[in-house]
């Protein structure tokens, strides 16, 4: 199972400089880390991987069992992708439980399998709270629970521990290290050194060369 970037070029609308120029990279099962300076294109890569941004040229291709083709369809986003945005983007009017069950239901997953992620991430007692009633760390965990609740085959995390204390970071790191299913492609964009031990597969955007 792979997610392949094939000669992908991309520049933001209204800007001339390319964020990616004929970029090719393959991601397989397991955790991959993207590291690099701010603005180097880590978040853009995650959004291209999810299909939230269409590449200017080239193709982002998913080679999953029973699914092979370019990413970007609504069905692909709904069923295959779990995304934790840097700004989290939790639904502001919905409770934590509602945020999670909504994502699971959209993906066609059982709600019973979704809610245990709240336990594992230590926010079960906050299930009925609105996102605005949670701390930053709790919101990060809620966003991760929402991404995992839909049993994605592609998990994309954009700075999942930025600004978090060690306790919260440890909870998230523990889940990522121990609780992820084996048949999952997980790409984490981070500059948090505490997460570097999660994987040897590190793409250093400072040099744009795979480090490991």
């Amino acid at each position: 199972m792979n997610l392949d970037f094939l000669q992908v070029s991309y520049h933001y609308p209204g800007r001339k400089e390319l964020v990616f120029d004929s970029f090719s990279q393959s991601f397989s099962e397991g955790v991959s880390l993207l590291k690099g300076y701010s603005g180097c294109g880590k978040s853009t890569l995650l959004r291209l991987a999810a299909g939230l941004l269409p590449p200017g040229s080239g193709e982002v291709r998913a080679n999953f069992p029973n699914l092979a083709g370019a990413v970007g369809s609504a069905a692909f986003l709904r069923r295959e992708v779990g995304f934790v945005f840097q700004q989290l983007n939790l639904l502001p009017l919905a409770s934590v439980r509602r945020n999670i069950t909504l994502a699971a239901q959209l993906a066609g997953c059982s709600v019973d399998n979704a809610l245990p992620w709240l336990e594992r991430l230590g926010i079960a007692e906050l299930a009925e709270h609105k996102p605005t009633q949670l701390s930053g760390g709790q919101q990060q965990r809620a966003a991760l629970a929402r991404a995992l609740a839909k049993k994605p085959r592609l998990l994309l995390l954009d700075e999942p521990t930025s600004g978090l204390d060690d306790g919260n970071t440890e909870i998230i790191k523990s889940v990522l290290a121990n609780d992820l299913p084996a048949d999952l492609i997980c790409i984490i964009a981070t500059h948090d050194a505490r997460l570097l031990s999660l994987s040897h597969d590190i793409l250093d955007f400072n040099s744009r060369l795979p480090v490991a």
């Binding site: 999810a50 609504a74 069905a75 986003l77 069923r79 995304f83 983007n89 639904l91 909504l102 959209l106």
Partner: peptide, 9 residues
């Protein structure tokens, strides 16, 4: 946009 990122058409 948020709902579209969930796969809502």
């Amino acid at each position: 946009a948020l709902l579209r990122s969930f796969g809502v058409r």
